[in-house]
């Protein structure tokens, strides 16, 4: 069960609209390595983790990703609010405008709609945690690519830097989760059994 908090995880106050940047940053809303992908991936994978500590981590990171989803949406909204028709047409945002006006719709920078084929739930904790670590690095690279474009615009760069830093923290925590899972497996053969399929759910510190 979830509850909403009426605040952003990190404040955003963009005063100058910019259609081109909105189109770029939109990729972190509905693109292949975007925030909704991340949230759906973690919140779906947690059912087949076989370890309560890792389920907890996926729940909490998946929840934080929803807050990042809201932050990216806020950036897009503030970057597109008050644009003139001329700016929209010149910037290349025209096709998006025709379908969505300046509503916020999950798509990649090149216009590909959000697609769950961009994420995987394998039902194997080792496989899924490797995907999660890769996902955080892919999102970090995307934020690095965005930062090269907006580095001289602090009102955009600041929240993007915050989001980038969170990717690094999540990557670290997923690495620790992978270690927790591996500690419960056969150290001579990590692939001898699937913790989520062949074993009952365990919880620390009782180990049951």
């Amino acid at each position: 069960m979830w509850n909403y908090e009426k605040r952003l995880e990190y404040p955003i106050n963009i005063t100058t609209p910019n259609a081109k940047l909105a189109q770029f940053i939109m990729s972190q809303y509905g693109g292949p390595d975007g925030e909704i992908s991340a949230s759906m991936r973690y919140l779906s994978q947690r059912f087949s983790m076989g370890d309560r500590q890792v389920m907890g981590l996926l729940t909490d990171i998946g929840t934080e990703e929803l807050a990042h989803f809201e932050m990216v949406a806020t950036i897009i909204h503030q970057l597109t609010k008050g644009l003139s028709m001329e700016e929209i047409e010149k910037s290349g945002l025209g096709p998006y405008y025709i379908d969505h006006t300046i509503g916020v719709w999950p798509q990649a920078a090149a216009g590909i709609p959000f697609n769950t084929c961009e994420l995987q739930v394998k039902g194997d904790p080792i496989t899924d945690l490797h995907e999660d670590m890769a996902a955080e690095q892919k999102a970090r690279s995307t934020y690095d690519n965005i930062l090269r474009v907006v580095r001289n615009m602090p009102e955009i760069a600041d929240p993007i830097r915050f989001l980038r830093a969170r990717e690094v923290v999540h990557y670290q925590r997923f690495g620790e989760a992978l270690r927790l899972v591996q500690d419960k497996l056969d150290s001579k053969n990590f692939y001898a059994f699937n913790l989520a399929f062949d074993q009952p759910t365990t919880c620390p510190p009782c180990g049951k």
Binding site: M55, P200, C203
Partner: peptide
């Protein structure tokens, strides 16, 4: 003195088999 947040069962955990 420990982080109880992850110690409690998750709501989807089965009570009859598998769960803690």
């Amino acid at each position: 003195n420990r982080w109880e947040w992850i110690m409690q069962p998750f709501p989807w955990e089965s009570k009859c088999k598998g769960g803690c």
